[in-house]
Design a protein around this nucleic acid. Structure first.
Length: 210
DNA sequence: CCAGTGATCAACT
DNA sequence: GTTGATCACTGGG
């Protein structure tokens, strides 16, 4: 029997509560080219209206629409003119919180991931970083809104081997200022200690005007 | 270190 | 309708 996906009920809570529980879980995506699965080793929580770092901070727009929908769907966005990143939408419908998938280990479809990540020098780099993870899985704009909890979905979130709570580490979010970023406020980034697929920390850099 | 690349959105005409 | 700043990043020096 096929392994059942993570239950939507588990995800229907604030992203901050859900995030550490996603470590060790598996995101699997199937396309005509084949299947790649990634075991999550690094995630970040994003809140809604009271989180300046969140895409949902300024309210509902066409881009962040799926963040406001029910839990268990994928929020995929395009950034820096060339990259996609993916979040698991959390919380109840109308409340936009989510968890950014920042890093993971490819545990299935390594050969296919390699063809999608030509610049990677070692397999650990296939999904080390949010845009790399999306690229390795073969996700894109058309996967925005995909249901991760539906039986038979080509994009599915599965439970993984249990994680030792002692290995869960927390810290500020990457590339985000204010609450939950820099050293300020809350540690909204979660990762598994000792995993080589956790992306390097980079502080937020304010852009200078020309 | 820093350039690339284009969608997005607020602030304007 | 247009402008301009910003951007939850990556790869190459």
């Amino acid at each position: 029997m096929e392994t059942a996906s993570i239950e939507r009920e588990f995800l229907s809570r604030p992203g901050l509560e859900v995030a550490p529980g996603l470590l060790g879980c598996v995101l699997r995506h199937t396309t005509p080219d084949g299947t790649v699965a990634v075991r999550l080793t690094e995630v970040e929580a994003y809140q809604g209206a009271d989180d300046p770092g969140s895409h949902a901070f300024r309210g509902r727009t066409p881009r962040n629409e799926v963040m406001f929908g029910p839990a268990g769907h994928l929020y995929v966005y395009f950034t820096y003119g060339m990259h996609f990143c993916a979040n698991v939408v959390c919380d109840v419908e109308g409340t936009a919180t989510a968890v950014l998938l920042r890093g993971g280990e490819v545990i299935e479809g390594s050969a296919l991931a390699a063809t999608r990540r030509l610049s990677a020098r070692t397999p650990r780099e296939y999904a080390r970083g949010p845009a790399r993870l999306v690229s390795a899985l073969g996700l894109g704009r058309s996967d925005n809104g995909a249901d991760l909890c539906a039986p038979g979905s080509p994009t599915v979130l599965l439970p993984g081997a249990p994680v030792d709570p002692e290995r869960v580490r927390t810290g500020p979010r990457v590339g985000v200022s204010g609450p939950g970023g820099d050293g300020v406020g809350f540690p909204w980034r979660f990762w598994l200690d000792g995993e080589p697929t956790v992306s390097p920390y980079r502080p937020h850099v304010p852009k200078r005007r020309k």
